[in-house]
């Protein structure tokens, strides 16, 4: 598998070259902040199906903005912190989009994922263990393709799933 690192390197080198060549009008930080605002507003502590669905579109717009309009000065042959940041933001966009997908899929509230449509009368998280007792592991399908969800079912033998009470 010694060719594997070479493939990864050539992929990343191509991305780096692409990022440096765009020379648009948006700075990396501007795009980063827009991404952050979308995630904060729609995929934060409290989420709704509508909000997540809006976010899904908005984030695609941010992705387009990045790959068509980002401006990163300098080259890859020097210490280039803008380029480093750009690479990270490109990854964050991917990650953010996936988080939104995942949140949309999970039609329950569970742990840090709170969907306003699924709450108890007292406003606590309402789980749906019948349908969602699994870990969702998303699998990369190549550039531009939707990730595929793998479900790792959670089986509880000795401990029974129950509702936590803070009273």
């Amino acid at each position: 598998m010694t060719w594997y690192p070479l493939i990864i390197r050539s992929f990343s080198k191509r991305s780096i070259q692409k990022i440096l060549s765009i020379n648009g009008s948006s700075t990396v930080d501007e795009i980063h902040k827009e991404l952050g605002k979308i995630m904060w507003d729609y995929c934060g502590m409290s989420r709704t199906a509508q909000g997540l669905s809006d976010a899904r579109e908005k984030i695609q717009a941010v992705k387009q903005q990045f790959w068509n309009d980002v401006k990163v000065l300098g080259t890859n042959d020097e210490l280039n912190m803008s380029l480093e940041k750009a690479g990270r933001v490109a990854d964050f966009i991917e990650l953010g989009a996936l988080m939104i997908e995942d949140a949309l899929h999970r039609n329950e509230s569970c742990g840090g994922h709170f969907r306003e449509e699924y709450q108890t009368e007292e406003g606590e998280a309402l789980r749906d263990d019948e349908h969602f007792a699994y870990v969702g592991a998303w699998e990369y399908q190549g550039e531009g393709n939707q990730e595929v969800q793998n479900k790792e079912q959670l089986q509880f033998e000795n401990v029974k799933l129950s509702q936590r009470s803070y009273k």
Binding site: S25, T27, D29, E30, K71, L73, G74, L79, M81, S82
Partner: peptide
């Protein structure tokens, strides 16, 4: 400094590292 760098980048000048 981030603010300064935003201005510099918009002006096609290398940001301060």
């Amino acid at each position: 400094l981030d603010e300064l760098n935003e201005h510099l980048i918009k002006n096609n000048e290398d940001p301060v590292h």
